[in-house]
């Protein structure tokens, strides 16, 4: 381990602080921009300290927005991100359970088929998927936002790898204790996977939250817009003037839920890690 004393200590901290400053500065600017008025932004130099219009800008963004109220778009995004995260976790837990614990014909084939879809990102299959979603009448609906993105090879693979490390004796002990397969899944496998579930939830929530292309295709009604695509929709087209303070306020609001999820789950995540240590 490197000696942590004297000048080295200060230098490393200095390096970290400078790095932090570089990363944090644009976010600070966005925050400043969301608390001042439009003319103040347009007139250079841009101020570096927050103004006095915080409440005004944010309430304007939340309640009316530009195309649709931000509160509405936040809600849409939350439904989509939560639906994708929970749906992906539920489906991949079950499919990994099937692949690891049951012997059925074509088991390997199914595993490789699932694995193969890893190589097909949403963008590749977006036209046929859109066609299918449209045929099912899922345009401008939450099911249209969620279901086409819900299958996850990555999560299935991850759970499969985890289940393979669970000793066989545990499944056998449960069998001797009288647990049927689904009981074993609920009582033993699921609680043992909670660390993995927490980690995946964070990743998948952010994945769902940041979806841009798919909601752009599937929703045309502004009241179904998600926040990430909504920000883009706020940009002026043609000669309109952009309401930058409101756009910046929206951006910051859009960042908030993922940050809260990361911070909230991190605690559970670390506790899970410590507790499941054998």
């Amino acid at each position: 381990m490197v000696e942590k004393r004297g000048a080295a200590l200060w230098l490393t901290h200095l390096g970290l602080i400078v790095g932090l400053f570089f990363i944090f500065f644009p976010i600070w600017l966005a925050f400043v921009a969301s608390t001042i008025s439009q003319p103040e932004i347009v007139r250079p130099p841009m101020p570096l300290l927050p103004g006095d219009r915080f409440l005004e800008n944010y309430s304007k963004a939340l309640v009316s927005g530009i195309n649709a109220p931000v509160a509405r778009m936040l809600f849409n995004s939350a439904v989509m991100a939560l639906g994708i995260a929970f749906g992906k976790i539920a489906i991949s837990l079950l499919s990994a359970f099937a692949i690891v614990y049951f012997r059925f014909p074509g088991r390997q084939l199914f595993f490789w088929l699932i694995f193969l879809t890893l190589m097909l990102p949403v963008e590749v299959r977006i036209v046929p998927t859109y066609e299918v979603a449209a045929q099912f009448g899922m345009l401008n609906s939450y099911s249209g936002l969620i279901f086409p993105l819900i299958a996850s090879a990555t999560a299935t693979f991850l759970f499969r790898q985890f289940f393979l490390t669970v000793p066989d004796e545990l499944a056998e002990a449960a069998r001797v204790d009288g647990a049927r397969p689904m009981r074993f899944f609920w009582d033993i496998l699921l609680p043992m996977s909670r660390t993995n579930i927490a980690a995946l939830f964070v990743i998948l929530f952010i994945y769902g939250w940041n979806q841009y292309l798919w909601p752009l295709l599937i929703t045309t009604d502004p009241s179904m817009n998600t926040i990430v695509m909504g920000i883009k929709q706020m940009f002026p087209s043609g000669d309109d003037t952009a309401d930058w303070p409101v756009i910046m306020a929206t951006s910051l609001l859009a960042m908030l839920p993922p940050i809260l999820v990361v911070i909230g789950m991190q605690r559970l995540f670390i506790r899970g890690l410590v507790e499941s240590e054998k």
Binding site: P167, E169, L170, E172, A173, A174, R175, V176, D177, G178, A179, D187, I188, P191, M192, E275, S276, K278
Partner: peptide
């Protein structure tokens, strides 16, 4: 018969206790 219907109990080498 399934193990549970055989009226047996088993002690495993690595104990196989449910960790959680």
């Amino acid at each position: 018969r399934e193990p549970m219907d055989r009226d047996i109990a088993m002690v495993f080498q690595n104990y196989a206790l449910y960790p959680h």
